[in-house]
């Protein structure tokens, strides 16, 4: 088949001759993380034999997280750089322990996080990891470092959906394996949940009328609505999800260490700066008051 060869040639030509152009449009602006890293703190004392000492000796912090969570931990396919709130915190934590922001991301999923921590594949999990007492039986949670919540989005002009109870009996779109599914079941048990694999798929499905509402983390929905005029976020978040930094179960020393660091960056205003550079690019107003460390049940 001649066209096969032809298309390879065209493909390579296209790929080759447009090398200089800039990256992909439509993503978040590049994070100003370098500026923040310059003034980020470094731990004064690392106790010998601790998890932190091992990380420092290795010279790299191994983080379990996502590549495709907008505003939180998203890879820019153009540069390979990881940006977002979680990603930036990871770099700051790496600098705090090692003295340099050296991190390596291991993609984890909601099912694999606990074994990844238990068998030492990763040092920390930074992945919208909601602190719950049940999970705390298997994982140590530092934090909460951020408090988020699930919200509802609809196509502009949709009527009759103003609060979670209105979802009852309707088709509701949610991301597969996201906390939204449990939240919908709790708020409106009769809602029919239609799951799709990723945020753009859910958005496209909502636009094409596969469901009447879309439940997702509020910050993400605000970011989506900023790009798509047809999308409307209804009301305030109807859940409170305190995100924690997952650590190996039972490592009180590391947990204490990470909590001290969180308190330090909250006090110095670094936490607020990270928020402004990520979530704050779409959510209007001043940074929220950071959650009190240890305030969530299970942390």
């Amino acid at each position: 088949m001649r066209w096969t060869t032809l298309s390879v040639v065209v493909l390579l030509a296209v790929a080759g001759c447009s090398g200089g152009e800039s990256a992909v449009p439509g993503g978040a602006p590049p994070s100003a993380i370098d500026r923040l890293l310059a003034k980020a703190p470094v731990a004064t004392a690392i106790p010998a034999g601790s998890a932190m000492a091992r990380i420092k000796d290795r010279g790299e912090l191994l983080i379990g997280g996502s590549l495709d969570a907008p505003l939180l931990s998203q890879q820019n396919p153009g540069t390979g750089e990881l940006t977002g709130f979680d990603a930036d915190l990871g770099k700051l934590l790496a600098k705090y322990i090692i003295g340099e922001p050296k991190t390596k991301l291991v993609t984890s999923t909601s099912e694999t996080r606990e074994p990844l921590l238990a068998n030492g594949t990763v040092d920390v999990i930074l992945q919208t990891y909601t602190i719950t007492p049940q999970r705390a039986e298997r994982v140590a949670f530092a934090g909460p470092y951020y408090s988020s919540g699930q919200a509802i989005a609809v196509r502009r002009g949709t009527t009759g959906i103003a609060k979670p109870a209105d979802l009852a009996g309707r088709k509701v779109i949610a991301g597969a394996n996201t906390p939204a599914i449990a939240a919908i079941k709790a708020a409106a048990p009769t809602a029919e949940i239609v799951e799709f694999g990723s945020d753009p798929e859910c958005l496209t499905a909502l636009r094409q009328g596969r469901g009447e509402a879309y439940v997702q983390d509020q910050a993400l929905l605000i970011a989506d609505a900023a790009q798509d005029g047809e999308l409307e976020v209804v009301g305030e978040p109807f859940t409170t999800d305190p995100y924690g930094i997952g650590l190996k179960h039972g490592d009180e020393q590391f947990k204490q260490f990470v909590n001290d660091w969180l308190r330090e960056i909250q006090k110095s205003g670094l936490w607020q700066d990270v928020w402004r550079d990520s979530i704050g690019t779409v959510v209007k107003g001043d940074p929220p008051t950071p959650p009190v460390i240890g305030s969530a049940q299970g942390s």
Binding site: V24, G26, G27, L67, D68, Q75, S198, Q227
Partner: peptide, 13 residues
């Protein structure tokens, strides 16, 4: 990779 890309550029199709 296509999925991560689509997530970033919002050009699913």
């Amino acid at each position: 990779s296509g999925r991560v890309l689509a997530n970033f550029n919002h050009l699913l199709i």
